[in-house]
Design a protein around this nucleic acid. Structure first.
Lengths: 241, 241
DNA sequence: TAGTGGTCTAGACCACTTG
DNA sequence: AAGTGGTCTAGACCACTAA
């Protein structure tokens, strides 16, 4: 772990523990570089991480202000998986493995991913049950060229844990899309919809660090169980002149 | 404008113009620092911006790979306003100003924003019409302590343009939430809902650069007209030990 | 082994805020 | 005027990739 990441984690925990309170200023960059015995640029890299995570706001000539973080936010953003969320939020829930078999990819998904439709994938369907009701249906397609085998018991637990810890692969980035669509026959079959006509659909195409595409995911949420929160910084509009 | 931002824009336009093609490597950081006559760290700051915008993926020992950007994505992310989106996407649309008056804030919003309910705001309602149908209803509340006057003709154009260009204020960051909720009486009154029972609601609390809260926004979208796209990089899950 | 990106330094100058 | 963050440098060493 690099020094600036350690410092980021250290300051983060100081903010979470209220050692540094919301509305107050952090020590100046010079003070922090003395405290941690590193150069100022290294401190600045740590502060950049805090800035991007929404912990602080910097102001030239003034200092770094600690922001008021609302802890109960639901950060789907930043590629965090369902299992990780569950662990961090203590949701009383259960996963049902409905399907886990090898198939060739469907026409529709092949065109979305821009790959040949002879591509072989693990096709996975999992239902997420909360308080006895199935409120999320996850459909995953993982390229067998990257993930040769996918045991049922791993699929039922955390996919990302299996991929990263067991397979040693490193996930890089994803493009995600959120839309609302009419519920399908399949949605009605597996989910507890109470007569809802629509579901929220999030589609992602996930790539490894070396840019290899390896997963397509469709996550279908019951309307009342979907919530997405993000922290956004202003970026000046593009100049389309 | 700082040097690294100039370089970011320059390389960005080279990627968009296909001078650097998707799948290829950018010149190395050393080459780029010669080309632009700056130090390597300055090049690295420019590349960090490209990385965060989803233009490139870096790999140690290898280089910086240009990613395949899909241009028709709809970047609500990053605090871009409706008017700016419209400009950049050529949507055939029109804005109706339904309300623009000064009020004291409602109980509900006061508690959401954590301010006193005697706070005075400009209460603003605007309908966004596309191809003759009202598909978005924007409700804005701007603190009069920050924005003393808000002319109708400015409200009808771009709020952000007025705030940034006319008032000289700098917008800093926002916390945004996306949920699906039952349509209200007001939604049915102003929007063309075709019998939909729900709408997508995005709520934001927007702060200035100096952390002053100045705006609360609720944007209500017809289900079939809502789409949100984001580019996300993997961040290891928090350690809640 | 040569070339790449990842990290870090010690110092410099600038722009901005506050007294 | 003193202190803050914003930018930039020239050089160093490390970890990784590919030939």
């Amino acid at each position: 772990m690099s020094r600036f990441q350690d410092i980021f984690l250290d300051i983060e925990s100081d903010i979470l523990n209220q050692q540094y309170k919301a509305g107050e200023l952090l020590p100046s960059e010079n003070k922090l570089s003395e405290k941690y015995n590193v150069s100022r640029e290294t401190i600045r890299k740590a502060l950049t991480l805090l800035l991007e995570s929404g912990y602080i706001q910097k102001k030239q000539g003034k200092g770094s202000i600690v922001l008021d973080i609302k802890r109960f936010d639901f950060p789907i953003s930043g590629l965090t998986s369902y299992k990780e969320l569950q662990d961090s939020q203590n949701i009383n829930s259960e996963t049902l493995l409905i399907k886990n078999q090898i198939e060739t990819i469907s026409e529709q998904i092949a065109s979305f991913l821009n790959v040949s439709k002879e591509t072989e994938v693990h096709a996975l369907i999992r239902a997420r049950k909360v308080d006895g009701e199935t409120v999320i249906l996850d459909k995953d397609y993982l390229l067998t060229s990257v993930i040769p085998v996918l045991p049922d018991n791993e699929a039922k637990k955390s996919l990302y844990n299996f991929i990263e810890k067991e397979m040693g692969l490193i996930i890089g980035y994803a493009r995600k899309e959120f839309v609302v669509e009419p519920a399908t026959q399949e949605d009605r079959e597996y989910m507890t919809l109470h007569g809802d006509t629509h579901v929220v659909v999030t589609r992602s195409e996930v790539h490894l660090e070396d840019t290899t595409l390896f997963q397509y995911t469709e996550s279908r949420h019951r309307l009342d169980k979907f919530r997405f929160v993000e922290f956004a910084r202003r970026r000046p509009p593009m100049d389309y002149s």
